[in-house]
Design a protein around this nucleic acid. Structure first.
Lengths: 199, 199
DNA sequence: CCGAGTTGCCTAAAAGCATTAGGCAAATGC
DNA sequence: GCATTTGCCTAATGCTTTTAGGCAACTCGG
């Protein structure tokens, strides 16, 4: 007597993402997932290649979800409005789905990364800068800096770095976005290089 | 016939840090460490409580090392000079010791964190801001933002996020520091709140 | 509606890591 | 020189990962 549960790569990935949010991404294990479906561990190996494969799929799912949310948030917005909306997508997603967010940080091999929704993120960040007056290569520098701030802030906040101390994190987040907006509106020129005297 | 190797919590922690730098922090395992000392696994348990304890010790070591470097870098510097020196300590440390840097990201329980060198980091970041004209609560916001940028940038760079694309990462890093300096010299006032009409 | 083939989950087994209990030899101290 | 402590060991358990091979239950052509 055999009982077919209806396992699928899809379903496993989704369940893995939920599991990650509940117990943390590094606690996502093939065994735990099998338990969740009340199925023997070996059964999962018909649907995912191995543990690494499972984790990669969860990461890709998270990247997709974030990119979708970001795209929706950016629609019809520009300037600071767009910047804020975009940034909040990251922060909100990380708070709603800490495990998925952690998954999205997984180091993907170059091909996988290139085929992931990660590139959409980069394009959207660049799109935000259309509302400001930046040209290459400053635009790229700014893209990288924005990504760093968003990721860094969210990651430190999630790690508890800003809790238990005043002022509360929401306030710092708002002021950080204010500061970034001001910075982008007034992006500094490169400082003097010794080879190009100004006097 | 027994052979005493001279295991110590100290030595295990140090070797664990080296191992982390070589194979990645998440590959640091009690077994691997035992192998490295050519000793049976159980022997380590007289010196570290468990795997978690070992990892925490490595994290604390990394935090100490970074704080020491930062303190040395800050001595005799102020303003942008201090900002740059401090930031470079992080980036350089992460590049020299990726495993240790990853360890430093480990989520510590509040008591451990409070007793760690992490608080020195926060104090030093605040010290940098003495060279700029910020008062509370903006100083705290700026501290958090700086921490976010440094951590975010280094972490994305280490993950390969900025490789294989122009301009090179060093350039973006320099320009990011320029931008942060400009921002701190010109930190924006909070925007109008609807409850305080300006007209 | 029924037999052939495919699919889906299973049992079994090997290997690695974490952790604990208890032993014995070597170092230490009086 | 003997008692004690210390330091590493053997042994054992339990969990996770992964592969190989089996059997029941669906599916589909006749």
């Amino acid at each position: 007597m055999t009982r077919r549960v209806g396992l699928t790569t899809e379903r496993l990935t989704r369940a893995g993402a939920e599991l990650a949010d509940e117990v943390g991404f590094d606690q996502v294990t093939v065994s735990a997932l099998a338990r969740r479906f009340d199925v023997k561990v070996a059964s999962l190996y018909s649907h995912v290649k191995n543990s690494q494969d499972l984790k990669t799929r969860i990461a890709l799912l998270a990247l997709e979800e974030m990119a979708d949310r970001a795209a929706a948030a950016l629609a019809g917005r520009a300037g600071k409005d767009a910047l804020t909306a975009f940034a909040n997508v990251y922060r909100d997603y990380a708070r709603e789905h800490p495990g998925r967010y952690a998954a999205a940080q997984l180091r993907l091999d170059p091909e996988t990364a290139a085929a992931s929704a990660g590139v959409r993120h980069a394009q959207m960040t660049r799109a935000i800068l259309r509302g400001y007056d930046l040209t290459e290569p400053d635009q790229t520098h700014a893209v990288r800096m924005l990504g760093s701030v968003f990721h860094g802030y969210v990651s430190l906040e999630l790690g508890g770095g800003f809790s238990h101390s005043a002022p509360d994190s929401q306030e710092s987040w708002s002021r950080t976005l204010d500061a970034l907006d001001a910075l982008l509106r007034n992006w500094p020129a490169p400082p003097n290089t010794p080879t190009t005297p100004t006097g």
